[in-house]
Every structure is written in C-alpha cells, then in structure tokens.
C-alpha cells in the first residue's frame, strides 16, 4: 500500500506492506537511522519519535497508521546546525554513553520541556520512566534535562568555564566528595 506522511517537515510517500512498523519505515525506507529499536514489546523506548506532536514508541505503530500524520525524529532536533538545548544539555551533563537510548530520550525530553519548561527532577524521572538506559543510571539524563530547562536558548548564555570545568548543575541530585593521596 502507499503511505504518505510528513516526516521532519517534508512530505514523503512510499509503497510499503501494511505490516511495516513505523520504526522500520523511518530507518530502512527513509534512512533516518537516528531512531533505534531495542526490544519488541514497547518496553525500552529506544524507538521514541513524535507523531502529531506526541512522543510514541514507533516499534508499536504501523507505518500505515502514521499515514496522513506528522512525524518528527531526532534528526530534526538541531536547527541550522545549532543543537537543541536538550542536545546541548546531554553533552554538557554527560547524559549519554553508548548513545543508543539517546535519541528517544531527547525526543521525550524536548516534549516534556515544551509542556513544562521547568520540570522537577521527579517529573523528569517519571517522563522518561518508559525508556531504558543501560549506561548512565539516569542521573546525568535528569541533570541534562534540567540543564536544558535552565538554558532554554542553549549554550549562548553559558559561561565557557562553567561548560568545560564545572560539574553538571544538578541541585539535590547526588553530590560528590574527593580525597586525594598526598
């Protein structure tokens, strides 16, 4: 069957099987491999993208069901070469390691901040609770989203020293102490 939808602002049409999953449509048919998949049961959230402005798990949506709708993937987050503040936050706060869950996390984080520009740490944790990260223990992801909340226009307003040298701003989220051998 033929499906037509808007992906990252551009209309695309492809001939697909009715059973084609949306995640395969964007990855295999459109070459947008930033959207990943990590399970088969809609538990991991690596495949999260936006459909009609809402984060959805694209392994559990048919491409056919997305026909006529608007899809946004991680590839659309940066604009004019400028990273979205959530992308910057993930970099500043080391919110990613292997990078596999990152696109899904970014899409959920962007959506959260659009609705709630100043989310609490608890709110952030709940928002990403359907998405697994095996590397970070989540703390720096939470810090990254907070960073983006505190820098809604990105790094332009960040002191350079703070960017490269300070620990991520994460009030109440952990703390650290050091003792070094003489």
């Amino acid at each position: 069957m033929q499906v037509t939808m808007t992906v990252n602002g551009a209309e695309v049409t492809r001939d697909v099987e009715p059973r084609l999953l949306l995640v395969h449509f964007v990855r295999d048919h459109l070459g947008l491999t930033g959207t990943h998949w990590g399970c088969d049961t809609s538990n991991c959230g690596a495949c999260v993208l936006w459909m009609d402005g809402e984060p959805v798990k694209s392994c559990t949506v048919l491409a056919a069901m997305a026909a006529g709708r608007s899809v946004r993937t991680v590839e659309d987050l940066a604009r004019d070469g400028e990273l979205d503040p959530v992308q910057q936050g993930f970099m500043q706060c080391h919110g990613l390691q292997c990078g596999f869950c990152t696109p899904g996390m970014l899409m959920t984080a962007r959506h959260l901040l659009d609705r709630d520009p100043d989310p609490s740490e608890a709110t952030i944790r709940e928002a990403i609770s359907g998405q697994l990260c095996r590397c970070t223990g989540y703390q720096n992801i939470v810090a990254a989203v907070r960073w983006a909340a505190e820098h809604p226009h990105g790094a332009a307003e960040v002191d350079d020293e703070a960017v490269t040298q300070s620990a991520p701003a994460a009030p109440g989220e952990g703390r650290s102490e050091t003792e070094v051998s003489a």
Binding site: T41, G130, Q139, G172, S176, E177, E179
Partner: peptide
C-alpha cells in the same frame, strides 16, 4: 523479553552520591 526480564528505570534509581579517594 523486557516484560519479564525487568531492568531498572529512572523511577527505581535514587540520586547517586559519589565520593572518591585516589
């Protein structure tokens, strides 16, 4: 599957408090 083999989410993880000696 991830329905039966459960991995921790952000909800089960507390804020980690790190210290170091060198």
């Amino acid at each position: 599957s991830f329905m039966d083999y459960l991995l921790p989410t952000a909800m089960e993880c507390p804020p980690w408090e790190l210290g170091e000696t060198v």
